[in-house]
């Protein structure tokens, strides 16, 4: 049976059903319901909910739990993710999987508490110091928040790297009907690398990100980047909506894509050929889908709740073959379908 859930709660329940029993968090609007939900549910199922003394402590607890081989997660909103960036870098440097959820709010600094997508650069290019990437998934409905939590945990384990769900305050706070999977529907991979006790039966495993010998560190980073190439080849995801005959294609993810979809529907009612290409993975960026679309459309319009952080990725993906324009609102403002339609009509 479908149930009505708030996005934040759905993320929590989906994580539990993906086998996560270790949540470490710290409150911040607009993601607090996720932590609150976990605080109610985890004790009932023998899991661990821990409100740490800070975001940094919480992310380091995730690192520890993940090193021991269990599925672990943390969640926060924009300023809190900045604080967690150190731990995310350490996990990347230790080849540890983990799930980090960012329910974005307006920035920079303390910013605001209304929805935003201004952490795109942070998520896809610089979640911390050093040469590394993390997987970034961008749901656009509460149901997709549920589905992508399982996918993110699986992909993180598969590639031994942290994964992020990049949501926003609107998705976190809104209520939509969801169908939840049963726990254990998906098999989890073995983790022979985990530091969970060798019992005198094998060499001990070491989880570490400190390598003082530069050639050894270079080798490790280069190996990681070879893995990233495989990730790029296999994990890209995007949804196309009415793109086949579109003259102009809107590129938007998350809550913005809901607005964009309404604008596309309005345009189609008027007989205007407009489509939507919605990245579901932001890293790896769905380059293949965009390249394919660039062969047909005469222009792209990216729509974001930021000053235009995804525009250059779209331009690079299509080698600037057709113009890529931008429309967005920032600071917690949400574009309206009418505003988007007006911009898109200017490109037809």
């Amino acid at each position: 049976m479908k149930v009505l859930m708030k996005g934040n709660e759905a993320l929590g329940e989906a994580a539990i059903r993906a086998g996560c029993r270790h949540f470490f968090g710290y409150p911040i609007t607009p993601q607090t319901e996720l932590a609150a939900y976990m605080s109610k549910r985890m004790p009932k199922i023998g899991g661990t909910y821990l409100q740490a003394e800070s975001e940094i402590a919480a992310v380091n607890m995730v690192l520890g739990a993940s090193a021991a081989g269990v599925r672990a997660m943390t969640s926060s909103s924009s300023p809190g993710i900045s604080l967690k960036s150190e731990g995310i870098s350490y996990m990347a440097g230790s080849d540890l999987p983990a799930l980090i959820i960012n329910v974005q709010r307006g920035g920079p600094g303390l910013g605001g508490i209304q929805p935003s997508q201004a952490d795109y650069w942070q998520a896809t290019k610089a979640t911390g110091h050093g040469d590394f990437q993390i997987l970034v998934f961008a749901p656009s409905t509460v149901q997709e928040m549920v589905d992508l939590v399982s996918e993110a945990f699986d992909a993180a384990d598969r590639w031994r790297m942290p994964a992020m769900i990049l949501a926003d305050g609107m998705l976190g706070q809104m209520m939509e009907p969801v169908e939840l999977p049963e726990e254990g529907e998906r098999a989890q991979v073995e983790k022979p690398w985990a530091a969970c006790g060798h019992g005198d039966k094998r060499e001990h495993n070491i989880i570490n990100s400190l390598y003082l010998t530069p050639d050894k560190l270079e080798d490790l980073v280069v190996e990681r980047y070879k893995r990233y190439e495989q990730v790029k080849a296999r994990e890209q995801r995007a949804e196309e909506y009415l793109c086949d005959d579109a003259d102009v294609i809107i590129v938007a993810y998350g809550a913005s894509s809901r607005v964009a979809r309404s604008a596309v529907n309005k345009a189609r009612e008027k007989g205007e050929k407009v489509g939507l290409l919605r990245p579901i993975t932001l890293w790896p960026f769905p380059v293949d889908a965009l390249r394919k679309a660039a062969g047909r459309a005469k222009a792209f319009l990216t729509v974001e709740m930021s000053m235009g952080q995804m525009v250059d990725d779209v331009r690079l993906a299509i080698d600037c073959r057709v113009p890529v324009e931008f429309f967005g609102r920032t600071g917690g403002m949400i574009p309206t379908p009418g505003e988007v339609l007006e911009r898109v009509e200017g490109l037809l």
């Binding site: 049976m1 479908k2 149930v3 009505l4 859930m5 709660e9 329940e13 109610k40 009907p177």
Partner: peptide
């Protein structure tokens, strides 16, 4: 009350 609301159904 809402029969379809998670945790209070």
């Amino acid at each position: 009350i809402n029969r379809y609301r998670a945790l209070s159904g």
